[in-house]
Structures are given as C-alpha cells and as structure tokens.
C-alpha cells in the first residue's frame, strides 16, 4: 500500500493530484506543518528534513521511502502510470524528466520566492522588491513553455502526462500572487486545462 504524508494545504497536494489521476489505492496521513507532527522521530526516520510530503510504498513487498514532491510524482508515474502519465517511447519519457527538472529549477524557486514575500511571511517581514525580482525571472521559463504549447496541446505531445502535472502544479500557485499570464495565452489555456482536470478539482476540494 502507498502511504502519502502531508495534507492538501501542503505540497502533498501535488502528489494527491497524481495519485487521483492514477486511480491507485493509497492511505493518507494528513500531518503537516500546522499539525506539527512532522518533527517526531518516527516521521524523521522517513523524511529527515522534517517536511511534507513524503511517501512510502510497500506494495508487493517493496521498500520505497522517499521525499521531494516532484520526484514522488515521477516515481508514481513510472511505476503506476505506464502508457498514461508515463508515456511510452524514449523521447516522451526523456521529456517527462526534462520538464519535471525544469519545474524544479526554473519555475518553483521563483514561484515560492514570490509567494513567500507576498503571502506566507508575516506582513512586517515581506519584501515586495524581492517578490518582484522573483516574478521577473518567470517570463523566461514561460516563453519556453509558450513556444512548446504553440505547437502541441501538452508538453509531451497530444496527451496529458506527468510532465504537465509536475509543471502545472507549481505554476498554478502563481494565481495567488496575481501573476499576469496575458503575454502567455497558450500557457494560460494549458494551465486551465490541467488544473481543471477532475482529479485535481477533487483534491483541491478535499474529496481525495
């Protein structure tokens, strides 16, 4: 059985979306930074950094324990999504690795940076100049996405894959900081299509 640690108000949301897309059974452990149960010895044995999400998968006698949300999604797709979230063919599979890394390096640091400075930090500690600096970094990444999505519906071609999920789950939070997608109409439409998928809607609504 797969066990996912983290609530839908944490980055575990991304993994819940993936699990729901795959339709696999899993057990959910809602601990997070608010519940404060992420610094216990038992949990630190699974994720020594004391963060969520993390995942264990003992299906079929396996012994998988891991953290890093985008990595968990790659693992889940490779293991349970062959032919769907993990597409067939070397080119598409390589693209899934590339876009997941792209999400981690080009999108997430600036998305998180902007969110910290505008939402998560106490008001007195927020630095709007720093927020803007992060937001200014994003058009480079979105220009790349816009080019790809001008040629095809999804990042690996015609079908939704883990590449789309791993980039969209990070980019979607930019709506919280009023990022202007006007210059990126293809990205905006694609993000709407990805976020609007029933699996994600269920997770966001807390039904997964």
């Amino acid at each position: 059985m797969i066990k996912l640690y983290g609530s839908n108000r944490s980055r575990a949301l991304r993994n819940l979306w993936c699990l729901k897309e795959l339709g696999v059974d899993y057990e959910r452990d809602d601990r997070d930074h608010v519940s404060g149960e992420i610094k216990t010895d038992a949990y630190l044995a699974i994720n020594p950094s004391g963060k969520v999400p993390s995942m264990t998968d003992h299906t079929g006698g396996g012994d998988v324990e891991m953290f890093e949300c985008l990595a968990i999604n790659l693992y889940l797709a490779m293991t349970y999504g062959k032919g769907t979230l993990w597409p067939d063919g070397a080119v598409s599979q390589a693209d899934c690795l590339q876009w997941s890394m792209f999400s981690a390096t080009e999108v997430e640091p600036h998305t998180v940076g902007a969110l910290m400075e505008r939402i998560f930090k106490p008001e007195s500690m927020r630095d709007e100049a720093a927020a803007l600096k992060h937001l200014e970094q994003l058009p480079r990444a979105f220009t790349v996405l816009e080019g790809v999505l001008g040629k095809q519906s999804y990042l690996c071609g015609k079908a939704f894959t883990i590449a789309d999920l791993n980039v969209a789950c990070v980019a979607a939070s930019l709506h919280m900081v009023q990022f202007d997608f006007l210059a990126f109409p293809k990205v905006s439409a694609w993000l709407g299509a990805c976020s609007g998928r029933p699996a994600n809607q269920d997770v966001v609504a807390g039904n997964a």
Binding site: D57, G62, D63, V64, E65, M66, F67, E68, L70, A71, I72, L74, Y75, M78, T79, S100, M101, A104, T105, E108, P109
Partner: peptide
Amino acid sequence: DDAGQARCIQWSVWAAGELEP
C-alpha cells in the same frame, strides 16, 4: 530495484530544487 530508483530521482530533484538555489 524500485527503492533505489526512487531514491535516485529523489536526490536528483533535491539537488536541482533545494541544493542548487
């Protein structure tokens, strides 16, 4: 093995997203 492969992906994403920045 699956467990080893999962950890390889985990540390690679960690290197890119946590360590590098």
